[in-house]
Nucleic acid binder design. Structure first.
Lengths: 333, 333
DNA sequence: CCATTTATTTAAAACGTTTTAAATACAATA
DNA sequence: TATTGTATTTAAAACGTTTTAAATAAATGG
């Protein structure tokens, strides 16, 4: 391995001069700078990132923590963040937690050791919020994406209005004349709150039987479908946690001989794979790429020690209802 | 920031002892070990990863280079690799190249600086093969996934038989009576070779008009469909580069009033999103997770300096035809 | 031509660990 | 008691950079 000392010796200068020269510092004369650079290239010298990290107290790495890598929603967001980062000289450490809080906390601890210069946490539980708060307060800048946080001065938040999304879907189904509307998802999610609000405004009661969890995979959707068909009093409209669930559910219903949307109107959330199905599935578009960008930008800004604008501590994204073929007026069977 | 010296002072021992104690070295007495550990915990001491990396000449990070993060195929593979790695104390730096060889080479150079202890490169062009070979020879262990490499002694390869996949699909269509079969994909891909072999064995000619590129996104599939319908002599069977393309194509055809599979039989490759469509799309299953595991295992083995078995230098995975509803006998319209 | 400034170079410290080799303490043996 | 051996601790070097502060060289002004 060729080090800065080798270059120094070969160029007949001190290591300090080599360092300065390679960083194009004008303190070193034009000629020596050039010469050193040539020698370095000739020797195939590559500055050691580890040594640099130690002295600069920065690794040029940022951490990205997401629940599942193979989930179109997060994959798309990761891609967007990657796009923002790729022209800078930062790299991304990707941490998939599999929705496991312990694994998440393991990552947080790694981050505390100085492995990364900043981190983005996307929509997980809020189990480790305290720990992450400590990370943000004492170690490195942190940004949240679609994750709630009381103190946005310490951890800014980029957030889409998923509650409104579920609300819009519920209203949409109600407008179509559906009276019995189910929700597939957890109750501690804001999507559930939106669903409830929709029901409430229309004066519909919340039926326990109509709330099914857990729910974020295709398989969960299939399982929910099974339960649904087992009910004595079946719903005609269903709001799903996300597109994958909606797909699993729809495919199950269709295979079971049911008609979508004639007998069941199904909605997804997040606009990822919903357009892949036939009929295309009604959903809520969440601007993944548009959210990834400011998240990355904010984090870099913080890493560089710049002050955030007051408006940057909470960046809010509205969502949009996308009506497609999987929802139809009630009773069209 | 609390360093090892602070702990040493507080515990009344030397930094060396602290280091040994925290690494549970039996050279330091049971009592001091315990005491030091307590003091360290009390002071909230976290060993600095950057300093450690410098002296140990290892960062405990591995690089994973893939073309696109938001491509179900790679997302799934990344997830599998992540699963293998998560119990070790390694992290993954994810590099999405967007199929840009320059970006890829940028990552390779970063790797040469000692940022990672090893790297996995998944199916990209072979533009940078020389450079990566240098990386593998002089810097860190490297493993290829679905990427060809003449010297598997230096860079082991984990590979699925995609040529056979395309071949099987072509044979499948031929067996169904299709005589005019198109291919959507690039000619320099082995999938194309499989397609050609299939045609050839059946004595069918290769028609230039029937080969359409580029092709790896949903949009590409839509574009290909447009071109296809513009042909005077339209094919009845189509082999697509991957599932996303097949989906885009199918959806376009259906929207254009065509019947799938009655008028057009469509096949995907990689078994990702093909099952999401209705009709479910015939495809080739590629064992992504099964491939990710040995890739990760191999790399860790190499990083730890273990010798590979002769059979481990090239690990081959067969693929499987999955017949679904998007393919039917020719002339069933 | 000396005194000052300015430009250029460098020695040495620093970053925070691990590890080697030496020192010390302690116990056991003769 | 002296001797050898073993267990425990530590001083110091090492990892490969950057950076500070000092040294040197060159240039400017009087």
């Amino acid at each position: 391995m060729v080090t800065i000392k080798d270059v120094a010796k070969a160029a007949g200068v001190s290591p300090a001069t080599v360092s300065l020269a390679l960083n194009n510092d004008k303190k070193v004369s034009r000629e020596t700078r050039k010469r050193v650079q040539q020698v370095a290239k000739a020797l195939n010298y590559i500055p050691n990132a580890r040594a640099k990290a130690l002295v600069k107290k920065a690794t040029q790495i940022i951490g990205l923590v997401i629940p599942e890598i193979d989930n179109p929603f997060f994959a798309e967001m990761a891609q967007a963040i990657n796009d923002c980062i790729k022209d800078s000289d930062y790299s991304i450490i990707l941490c998939g937690t599999d929705n496991n809080p312990e694994l998440e906390s393991k990552y947080v601890n790694t981050f505390m050791s100085g492995l990364v210069d900043g981190a983005i946490f996307a929509c997980l539980t809020d189990v480790n919020n305290e720990l992450i708060m400590e990370l943000a307060r004492n170690y490195i800048p942190v940004v949240y994406v679609d994750r709630l946080n009381e103190d946005t001065q310490v951890i800014p938040v980029v957030k889409s209005d998923l509650k409104d999304g579920a609300y819009q879907l519920t209203r949409h189904l109600i407008a179509l004349g559906h009276q019995k509307i189910a929700f597939i998802g957890r109750k501690d999610e804001e999507r559930f709150a939106g669903y409830c609000q929709g029901l409430q405004e229309a004066g519909y009661p919340l039926a326990e039987d109509y709330v099914l969890a857990p729910s974020y995979t295709f398989a969960h959707g299939v399982a929910a479908g099974k339960k649904l068909l087992g009910l004595a009093d079946q719903p005609t409209g269903i709001v799903c946690f996300n597109d994958e669930v909606a797909l699993g559910l729809t495919q199950f219903l269709v295979k079971a001989g049911k008609k979508v949307p004639a007998e069941f109107s199904v909605c997804g959330i997040d606009n990822t794979v919903s357009r892949y199905y036939n009929p295309e599935i009604t959903t809520i578009d969440v601007p993944k790429k548009e959210m990834g960008r400011p998240a990355a930008a904010l984090l870099l800004k913080m890493i560089h020690g710049e002050q955030l604008q007051e408006t940057e501590h909470f960046i809010h994204f509205p969502v949009k209802l996308i009506k497609r073929a999987s929802t139809a007026p009630a009773g069209s069977a």
